[in-house]
């Protein structure tokens, strides 16, 4: 690893100031569970690391019925996994966190750091997309808020400018009659996912679909929301046939990259299986 300078700002304001000063020469470290590996490989050589791991200002989980949940970016995966508020209002989020990487990673790694690294197989983004989450970004010119699905740009690249940080994840309250499911495919349990799928359905009183969300990981350079597949369900009663139709459309949207573990066709095929399974599971929660 190359030498770098180090600073641990005490506030968000101070963090932005440092970033504005150093720009491209600075890199943020939170839990560093991915970043340190990259630094050790000398694939990146920042002049200064800006450590926000202990930035308590961004370490919180709150909930109210009107605005839903707010999770500070430096909240650890473990805190999300075990939060009574998360368990009560978004059990699927806790469930996902419970199987994210290893206990060690969850204990030290942060939810914000995970999103910012933008590993295309990441677990967190699809479920947040399904939950209609938004992210709050803070920069020298104030705040901006984006839907989760607009946060990622490419492999390991997000919309964040050099002087911006991801500050908060906002998840609206879940509408009544909503079912949400997420699961991922791995060859080795307790290992990183190959592909995964999150599906959320909200039903009208008459049982027709008021809203659907489908998002996958490992199927494109970024977490993939698939509106065309979602559209299949709108206003209709969800049936197996409809699910099959959506799955096919979802498959069309996927651009899987082959790697040493699996081919692109295989990944797509399994991702489709997971979309189907999660759709059925989500539906089963409300029927």
């Amino acid at each position: 690893m190359r030498d770098f300078d180090y600073i641990a700002p005490k506030t968000v304001e101070e963090t932005i100031k440092v970033l504005s000063e150093y720009k491209d020469d600075a890199k943020i470290i939170a839990g560093g569970q991915s970043l340190l590996n990259i630094l050790k490989q000398d694939l990146m050589a920042p002049e200064i690391l800006v450590d926000i791991k202990n930035l308590s200002e961004l370490d919180y989980i709150t909930y109210d019925d009107k605005d839903g949940m707010k999770i500070g970016a430096t909240t650890t995966h473990h805190a999300v996994e075990t939060s009574p508020l998360v368990l009560e209002h978004y059990p699927i989020l806790a469930e996902m966190e419970h199987t994210l990487a290893f206990p060690q990673t969850r204990n030290w790694g942060t939810i914000g750091g995970n999103l910012c690294i933008q590993d295309p197989t990441g677990d967190v983004a699809p479920i947040l997309i399904a939950l209609k989450a938004t992210v709050k970004i803070v920069g020298p010119n104030g705040e901006r808020t984006l839907p989760m699905e607009d946060f990622s740009v490419d492999y390991y690249e997000t919309v964040l400018e050099e002087d911006e940080i991801l500050a908060e994840i906002q998840i609206p309250a879940v509408a009544p009659k909503t079912g949400i499911a997420y699961s991922k495919f791995r060859i080795v349990e307790g290992d990183a996912p190959i592909v995964g799928a999150a599906v959320a359905f909200t039903l009208n009183e008459d049982g027709t679909c008021a809203d659907a969300r489908i998002a996958t990981n490992g199927t494109a350079p970024i977490p993939l929301r698939i509106p065309d597949a979602e559209a299949v369900f709108k206003g209709k009663k969800i049936t197996d046939a409809l699910i099959e139709e959506a799955v096919e459309i979802a498959g069309e949207a996927m651009e899987c990259i082959p790697d040493i573990v699996a081919s692109d066709e295989y990944k797509k095929r399994v991702a489709k299986v997971y979309v189907k399974r999660m759709a059925k599971k989500a539906l089963s929660q409300i029927q």
Binding site: Q41, D42, L43, Y155, Y156, P221, I257, P258, D259, I260
Partner: peptide, 14 residues
């Protein structure tokens, strides 16, 4: 080197 091992999938898409 490291580019090959770390970034197999990224290199391919890039």
């Amino acid at each position: 080197g490291k580019l090959a091992t770390f970034g197999e999938k990224i290199m391919r898409s890039t």
